[in-house]
């Protein structure tokens, strides 16, 4: 997450098939509660969140690729 780019729209949480993401409790410098990958161990690296994020705030790095 690039937390200061997140605008808390929730689209990534909505499209994640594995329910990895959750709205965070902390605020970024613009006052948005940025999304956090709380259940990162469930991530399968599909990148739907990266593709759907309108704010270039989230991206996926897959180990071993």
């Amino acid at each position: 997450m690039i937390v200061d780019r997140c605008k808390e729209c929730g689209l990534c949480i909505n499209v994640c098939p594995q329910k990895v993401l959750e709205r965070g409790n902390e605020f970024n410098i613009y006052g948005y509660r940025y999304v956090s990958p709380k259940y990162i161990e469930k991530c399968v690296g599909c990148r739907l969140c990266e593709y759907i994020c309108p704010d270039f705030a989230i991206y996926v790095e897959v180990d071993g690729l």
Partner: peptide, 29 residues
């Protein structure tokens, strides 16, 4: 940082579009 950052003037981010606006999705694609 982001894989697309080399194509962005990152010093101007975050952009002006409202939360959930679809334009960012188009630009990213």
């Amino acid at each position: 940082i982001h894989p697309l950052d080399r194509y962005l003037r990152t010093d101007r981010l975050p952009h002006i579009w409202c939360p959930g606006c679809g334009i960012g999705i188009v630009i990213s694609a």
